[in-house]
Design a protein around this nucleic acid. Structure first.
Length: 412
RNA sequence: CGGGGCGUAGUAUAUCGGUAGUAUAUAUGUUUUGGGAACAUAAGGGCCGGGUUCGAUUCCCGGCGCCCCGACCA
């Protein structure tokens, strides 16, 4: 893509109404646009990152046996009344609205009811199980206080998978496999080293849950980490009994701030029973389906990567989720050969399947370098008059700043 | 929801109870051209409503919005 066609521009100044580094950098580099507190639009660059994150998650979920679909955002009140989650006294962050005929609908804040209700129509026999449907969708939560840039919004895009199993053993097996899939996801988006599985409370859903917590000073959660074992405990369940149960020692645990980038939890029959989601087993007996829930917020994940991997010049994307694989910088020159070589390099890169952002704008070199560093594409390829005269292109690594020179002929 | 802070140009900021200034971005021109260029010119602003006052962007009240701390976070 030619940068001259990208309508977004970078800014030098931090936005006055953002303190969080993730929102500051993402806004300055032109990845997101703030609409209101806790609500952001995704700009072209941001969408490219989100799509890559989405594809990584999709691959891992499919490998796990997941099957993708799309549940609606508008939710039927009656279904939520079955699980007693329609009442604002019970769930206080609903966004609700009215139909023209006076009926009430809600905007999805989670998906347990929707999936259980759909599956009721298709699951009858033990032969129909297990199933692992999931979707990517926008979720709405009327938070009393959104904060930390895109880490906690009122509208956000997430992946939610639900497991529907016949037995506890079958559930447990999948649950363990999902931990590996989640680890893979965080490794692939570049924050694996600082992300740890964390034992946490199950809230109103279950006894316990597991979170994936990324260590960073801007984190909102406090966890106690055993670095050697790579296991942590959330502060909310940091009690002797649990420390012992997990085979950890207080002396090995270090307090850290972290961001929760993913969460999985067993649901048991908490939803299948009230929803009447039952199946007939091989003995003809009716049983409730055993459920589990597996979520990841994609915007939060993008923001966390920025929090963890950026430097003083801007964002440093890992290759796997960078908006482009290479940033081609044409340093404007009176020598028309520079433009010619840059155009040729652009074509060469595109033809070899590399996604490239070509900075063809007629602006000064310094501005291009600063923009490129802020935007954070891992590789910069610089075409300049002095390089062209020497028959070379310059390659620069965004993360290390190391540069190398390639002959134009070799580049082709 | 409790507490604190803040709303001035596209963005970031300053001043002042009496013509609202600067930077940057934008447009035009000249000179520049490897780390956010210089000069000139142009265009662009007081969140909304009420009050006090000869006069309010400034002071007061209300609303709305934004940020931070706490509570909450299925």
């Amino acid at each position: 893509m030619r940068q001259s066609q990208l309508f977004t521009k970078t800014r030098k100044e931090s936005p006055k109404d953002e303190v969080a580094k993730n929102a500051d950098l993402l806004i300055r580099a032109g990845y997101i646009h703030k609409e209101m507190a806790g609500v952001y639009s995704i700009l072209p660059l941001g969408l490219r990152v989100m799509n890559k994150i989405e594809e990584i998650i999709r691959e891992e979920m499919n490998d796990l046996g997941g099957i993708e679909m799309k549940t609606s955002v508008l939710q039927n009140k009656e279904i939520w009344e079955k699980t007693n989650r329609w009442d604002d006294e019970v769930v206080d962050n609903w966004f609700k609205t009215k139909l023209k005929n006076g009926g009430e609908v809600g905007l999805s804040f989670t998906n347990e009811e929707a999936y259980s209700n759909i599956l009721k129509q298709y699951v009858n026999s033990y032969k129909d199980l297990p199933v692992y449907p999931y979707d990517f969708k926008s979720i709405f939560r009327n938070e009393t206080r959104s904060k930390s840039g895109i880490l906690r919004g009122r509208e956000f895009y997430w992946k939610a998978l639900y497991s529907f199993s016949r037995t506890q053993e079958e559930h447990d097996d999948f649950y363990e496999k999902s931990k590996i899939a989640y680890k893979n996801i965080f490794n692939r988006v570049g924050i694996g080293e600082s992300t740890f599985i964390t034992f946490a409370s199950g809230g109103t859903f279950s006894k316990y849950s597991h979170e994936f917590q990324t260590i960073t000073s801007s984190g909102e959660d406090i966890i106690y980490l055993d670095k050697k074992k790579g296991i942590a405990i959330n502060k909310e369940v940091y009690i002797d009994e649990i420390i012992e149960e997990l085979g950890l020692k207080k002396a090995d645990l270090v307090e850290e701030k972290a961001i929760e980038v993913g969460n999985i939890f067993p649901l048991g029959t908490k939803f299948s029973e009230p929803m009447n989601l039952l199946f007939t087993d091989d003995k003809g007996e009716k049983k409730p389906v055993i459920m589990g829930s597996y979520g990841i917020g994609l915007g939060r994940l993008m923001g966390t990567v920025v929090e963890v991997l950026s430097d003083e010049k801007g964002i440093v994307w890992p290759e796997t989720i960078a908006p482009f694989g290479a940033h081609l910088l044409e340093i404007p020159s009176k020598d028309s050969n520079v433009k010619k070589v840059a155009e040729e390099a652009y074509e060469t890169l595109k033809n070899s399947g590399i996604e490239v952002l070509y900075d063809d704008r007629d602006i000064r070199a310094g501005e291009k370098f600063a923009d490129a560093d802020l935007i954070g594409i891992p590789r910069q390829i610089i075409v300049s008059e002095r390089g062209v005269n020497a028959g070379t292109l310059e390659m620069k690594d965004r993360k290390t700043g190391e540069t190398s020179v390639t002959h134009i002929e070799d580049f082709k």
